[in-house]
C-alpha cells in the first residue's frame, strides 16, 4: 500500500467515525482537511463580482453539507462526492444575488435564529430535525422557518458585509451568529473600549479585523496561522467581550 493509499484509508476511516458519532469536532476537522477543495472550486467562480473570501465561505458551506452526507461505503472518493454540493451552493448564490439585496431585516433575523436552532436540535437529538421541530424551537411558524431557511442561503454573505468586510463564519461552518448582532447593538466604539482586556495578540487581531478591516485570510497569513484559526480566535474574543458587556450591564 502506498502512502497515498494510506492517506485515503485514514480519510475514509475518519468519515466512518464521523458517521457513527456525528461528533461536531470531528466534522470540523474533516471540513478543515478538505477545505482546499472548496477553495479550489471557489477560485473557478472568481471575477464574477463576488469577493473571493465570500465565495470561499459559500463553497465551504457546500463542503460542510457534503461532509455531513458522505457515505464512505459508497465507493466514490469524497472529492467526487463533494464537488456537486460545493458547486451547487455557489451556483445557488449567484442565482440569488438579486433577491438577497431585498431580504427584509426580519427574515434575516429569523434566518439567524433558525440556523442556531437547527444546530442545537442536531446536537441534542443526534438526528436531523424536521421543520416543525425548528418552528417549535424558534417560536416561528413553519412558513416563517421555510422562508428563513431560504433566505439563510442568500443572506449568508450579505450579513458578513453588514458586520464589516470579510467577517467569516466561525470554523468556516456557520455564519457567526453573534458577530453581526454584537456589532449592530454594541458598535465598534464599544469594542475599542473593551480591547484593553485582551492580550497583545488578541488586540492585534481585533485591530486588524475591525479597525483596519482586513480579511481573516490576510490576518492569518501575517500571523502564520490558518484562516480557520483566526476565525475561532475572533469568535472567542467576541464571546469574551460580550461577557464583559453583560457583566457590566448586570452590575450597573
Amino acid at each position: 500500500m502506498t502512502s497515498e493509499d494510506n492517506v485515503v484509508a485514514d480519510d475514509l476511516e475518519a468519515f466512518r467515525r464521523y458517521r457513527k458519532s456525528r461528533d461536531r469536532g470531528l466534522r470540523n476537522e474533516l471540513v478543515e482537511e478538505h477545505q482546499g477543495l472548496a477553495y479550489y472550486l471557489a477560485n473557478g467562480y472568481a471575477n464574477r463580482g463576488v469577493e473571493l473570501d465570500d465565495l470561499r465561505q459559500i463553497a465551504v458551506v457546500g463542503l460542510v453539507k457534503a461532509v455531513e452526507r458522505f457515505d464512505p461505503e459508497r465507493g466514490v472518493t469524497f472529492a467526487t462526492f463533494a464537488r456537486p454540493f460545493i458547486v451547487g451552493e455557489m451556483r445557488h448564490h449567484f442565482r440569488d444575488e438579486a433577491w438577497e439585496l431585498r431580504v427584509p431585516r426580519s427574515i434575516k433575523e429569523n434566518a439567524q435564529r433558525v440556523r442556531s436552532a437547527i444546530e442545537s436540535l442536531r446536537a441534542a437529538a443526534g438526528a436531523e430535525p424536521h421543520v416543525e421541530d425548528v418552528a417549535r424551537e424558534t417560536d416561528l411558524t413553519v412558513d416563517e422557518v421555510l422562508e428563513a431557511m431560504d433566505a439563510a442561503r442568500s443572506t449568508r454573505t450579505r450579513r458578513f458585509e453588514e458586520a464589516g468586510p470579510g467577517v467569516a463564519p466561525p470554523e468556516h461552518l456557520h455564519p457567526p451568529a453573534d458577530e453581526p448582532g454584537f456589532l449592530d447593538v454594541e458598535g465598534r466604539a464599544l469594542i475599542s473600549a473593551l480591547v484593553d482586556q485582551l492580550d497583545d495578540r488578541e488586540q492585534a487581531i481585533v485591530h486588524a479585523r475591525f479597525v483596519e478591516e482586513r480579511s481573516q485570510s490576510d490576518i492569518a497569513e501575517e500571523l502564520g496561522i490558518s484562516q480557520v484559526h483566526v476565525s475561532r480566535l475572533l469568535r472567542q474574543i467576541i464571546a469574551r467581550l460580550r461577557e464583559h458587556v453583560t457583566d457590566g450591564s448586570e452590575t450597573a
Partner: peptide, 18 residues
C-alpha cells in the same frame, strides 16, 4: 415539510429544484 421531510432532505430538494 408537509409530508415529513427533514431539514437535510429539504436542503437537497432545494438544490435540485434550483
Amino acid at each position: 415539510t408537509d409530508v415529513g421531510f427533514t431539514v437535510h432532505e429539504i436542503d437537497d430538494l432545494v438544490l435540485a429544484v434550483d
